[in-house]
Design a binder for these strands. Structure first.
Lengths: 153, 153
DNA sequence: GTATTAAATGAAAATGGTTTTCATTAAGAA
DNA sequence: TTCTTAATGAAAACCATTTTCATTTAATAC
């Protein structure tokens, strides 16, 4: 897969038989420009600034579509609202995981220590697939705890 | 921590300044007896059979309390309802993780390949804590995919 | 450019898991 | 047994997300 690129997005959507609409484009733009982990409402508000006609429903619908197409990833960090980010291949962040603060909900992206992780995942996925006859397509690795500001000194 | 044991539960609750009530006891009983991953409603229905006065509200309230006390773990597998199980130290399952089928939502517990995992976690947590000044208390590792019945052959 | 047609949209209503409110009950100490 | 306060249950509220449905619009054909 290639890097973040509008033409690729558009192409992908066309190829899949969908139309390139203004709301669709706007949502992708917002996701492409932020480094944050946005909720549907966050995205709605951001798009609303330059495209005030957008409806929250449309945001949800398009996010679902983009997630299905693999261009966006949905995360549930456990505070009610789902968060969305561009998939590795479409965003500028590259492959990363998250540290989640249990107090302030701050989320830190990290992409260190990935060699270890890849090794661990390869071995484990192989072993699990075989033992449980289960086709693994995906994994979730998240660390929870307290960030420096929330930790009692 | 010690093994699954009613007297420990009760003691723990008392020690924390809470009262031992019939609904509380019932919820712990249900969680202690099942091997499944129960939702609040599942627990409500199970308790309801032998304690028909139980209210769903009470189930939610007590689950929250038990989670706070660390006796129960809450999981969000991503299909709307949270699932609950006894914490490692209180249940009979021991430390384990989950394989989640994206189609039928079946959840398989596994506790194999843990040596690798422990190694990976130790190294990674150590590295992340230091680099991001973040106190890690907890982690979530989950594999998603298709179980043998849902996988197109 | 215009007509055509099905996909996409937006507003409002519905959904459904979870939380809150509040009057009542009951656990545990005195 | 009394007393205090935590705990309970029913009903209502909450709130993120989905559904409904009439209207708009992107993309294709003319």
């Amino acid at each position: 897969m290639r890097r973040h690129c509008q033409h690729q997005w558009r192409g992908q959507i066309k190829v899949c038989g969908y139309r390139m609409t203004k709301p669709r484009q706007s949502i992708m733009d917002v996701l492409g420009k932020t480094a944050e982990h946005l909720s549907a409402e966050d995205i709605y508000l951001a798009v609303h600034k330059f495209y005030p006609n957008i409806g929250l429903t449309t945001v949800y619908r398009n996010l679902e579509l983009l997630v299905d197409m693999g261009m966006v990833v949905k995360f549930e960090f456990g505070h009610g609202k789902a968060k969305y980010e561009l998939a590795d291949e479409y965003g500028k962040k590259g492959h990363h995981h998250h540290l989640v603060c249990k107090k302030c909900s701050k989320i830190i992206d990290y992409s260190d220590f990935m060699k270890d992780e890849v090794q661990f995942l390869q071995r484990t996925e192989k072993g699990l697939s075989a033992k449980y006859d289960f086709q693994i397509t995906d994994h979730l690795i998240q660390f929870y705890g307290y960030c420096n500001r929330c930790r009692e000194k």
